[in-house]
C-alpha cells in the first residue's frame, strides 16, 4: 500500500515537472489566441529562449540573467510574429511556421559557432540554474504519513519556475476575466471592429497580447534549458510547444481547463517513461510511442467534436483592416 502510494506521489511529482513548460506555454498561447493571433510558434519561441538562456547561463553563470535573456529572445520572436500578423497582415500560420523553422536552424548554427560542441551548450553548474527549493521543515514534516509525504515529495522540492507556472494559472484567469485588459483582450479576439470603434487600438492591444505570450514562452524555454536540464541540446523542446498548443485547445482557450489538460498530458508523459517495458495487466505492454502520441490523438478527437466542442475565438487568424 505504502509502495503504491509513494509510486503515485513520485509519478505526480514527475508530472508536475514535465507539465511546467506546458502550462507556461499553454498560458502564453491563450493570451495570444484570445487576442485573435494564432500561435503555433510556441515551440520556436521556447526553443529560442532555451538556447539563449543556456548560453547566457554558461557565459555569465547567472540563472536570473539567463531568464532575462530567454524572455528577451522569446519576446523578440513574438514581436516578429506580431509584425507579420498585425502590422503586415500576413498569414498567422505561415509566420509561425517560419519562426519555428528559423529557430530550429539558428539555434544549432549559433550553438556550433559559439561553443563548438555539436550544437549543445556547456553543462551548467547548479549556481547557474534554477535549483529545487526545499520548503521549510520538509524533512521533519516528511516523516508524517500521507500528508507529510505529499508535502515533502510533491509540494516541496521544485524549482522556482514550477511554482511560477502554477501561480500563473490563477493570475491568467484573473487578468482575462477580471481586468480591463482582459475584457478588451477577449473582445478583440471576438470582434476587433467593436474594439476599434470603442476607441481602443486593435494593433496595440494585440501587440501587448503577443508580448505577454513571448514572456511566458521565454520562461518556459528557460525552464527547459536551465531548470529541468543543465544546458541546451538541439531541438530540446521536442514538440512540447505543440503539446502545449494542444492542451490550450483541449482546455477550450480557458486557463483552468488548459491547466488540467497540461497536467493530463504531463501525466501521460510521466507514465510513458515509467511504463517502458512494464506489462500492464489485461492490456499487456503498452507501446510507448502510442502513449506519446496520445495528446495529439486526443486533441484531434476533441477538435472533431467527439468529446465536447472546442470553439475558438471568432476573429482568430483574421487580419484586421478598417473597412472602407
Amino acid at each position: 500500500m505504502d509502495d503504491i502510494f509513494s509510486v503515485l506521489v513520485l509519478t505526480l511529482d514527475a508530472t508536475l515537472r514535465v507539465a511546467t513548460p506546458l502550462i507556461l506555454a499553454a498560458m502564453a498561447g491563450l493570451f495570444s489566441e484570445r487576442s485573435g493571433i494564432i500561435d503555433i510558434s510556441l515551440e520556436g519561441k521556447m526553443l529560442g529562449a532555451a538556447f539563449i538562456s543556456a548560453c547566457t547561463a554558461a557565459v555569465t553563470g547567472s540563472a536570473w540573467l539567463a531568464l532575462m535573456a530567454g524572455i528577451g529572445v522569446s519576446v523578440a520572436l513574438a514581436l516578429l510574429h506580431g509584425l507579420a500578423c498585425i502590422t503586415y497582415r500576413g498569414n498567422h500560420v505561415v509566420s509561425a511556421v517560419a519562426i519555428n523553422i528559423l529557430v530550429a536552424g539558428l539555434t544549432v548554427v549559433l550553438g556550433i559557432a559559439w561553443f563548438e560542441r555539436g550544437g549543445t551548450t556547456p553543462a551548467l553548474p547548479s549556481e547557474a540554474r534554477f535549483m529545487p527549493i526545499e520548503w521549510p521543515l520538509a524533512e521533519i514534516i516528511g516523516q508524517l504519513p500521507v500528508l507529510g509525504t505529499l508535502y515533502k515529495e510533491l509540494l516541496s522540492g521544485h524549482n522556482l519556475l514550477v511554482y511560477v507556472a502554477l501561480l500563473l494559472v490563477p493570475l491568467s484567469w484573473w487578468v482575462i476575466y477580471r481586468s480591463r485588459f482582459g475584457l478588451r483582450l477577449r473582445a478583440v479576439g471576438e470582434n476587433p471592429q467593436a474594439v476599434d470603434t470603442a476607441g481602443i487600438s486593435v494593433a496595440f492591444l494585440r501587440y501587448r497580447a503577443v508580448i505577454i505570450c513571448g514572456v511566458l514562452c521565454g520562461i518556459a524555454g528557460t525552464y527547459i534549458a536551465i531548470a529541468q536540464n543543465a544546458g541546451f541540446t538541439r531541438d530540446m523542446t521536442a514538440g512540447q510547444g505543440y503539446i502545449a498548443l494542444a492542451a490550450m485547445i483541449f482546455g477550450k482557450w480557458r486557463p483552468a481547463p488548459a491547466l488540467l489538460a497540461c497536467l493530463m498530458f504531463g501525466l501521460l508523459d510521466a507514465l510513458a517513461i515509467r511504463m517502458q517495458g512494464v506489462p500492464v495487466p489485461v492490456i499487456g505492454e503498452v507501446p510507448v510511442p502510442l502513449i506519446q502520441a496520445l495528446p495529439y490523438i486526443l486533441t484531434v478527437i476533441l477538435l472533431a467534436g467527439f468529446i465536447g466542442k472546442a470553439v475558438a475565438p471568432k476573429a482568430i487568424g483574421e487580419p484586421y483592416l478598417k473597412e472602407r
Binding site: 516578429l80 509584425l83 507579420a84 500578423c85 503586415y88 497582415r89 500576413g90 498569414n91 505561415v94 509566420s95 511556421v97 517560419a98 519562426i99 519555428n100 523553422i101 528559423l102 529557430v103 530550429a104 536552424g105 539558428l106 544549432v108 548554427v109 556550433i112 559557432a113 563548438e116 550544437g119
Partner: peptide, 25 residues
C-alpha cells in the same frame, strides 16, 4: 566547420518569413 547544415534550415525559415508572412511588407 563553423557553418553547419542547419544554416539551410535557417535560410528556409527566413524564406518562409519574407516570402510568406512578410510578403506584403
Amino acid at each position: 566547420p563553423k557553418i553547419t547544415r542547419e544554416m539551410v534550415v535557417t535560410i528556409q525559415g527566413l524564406v518562409i518569413l519574407f516570402s510568406g508572412a512578410l510578403a506584403y511588407m
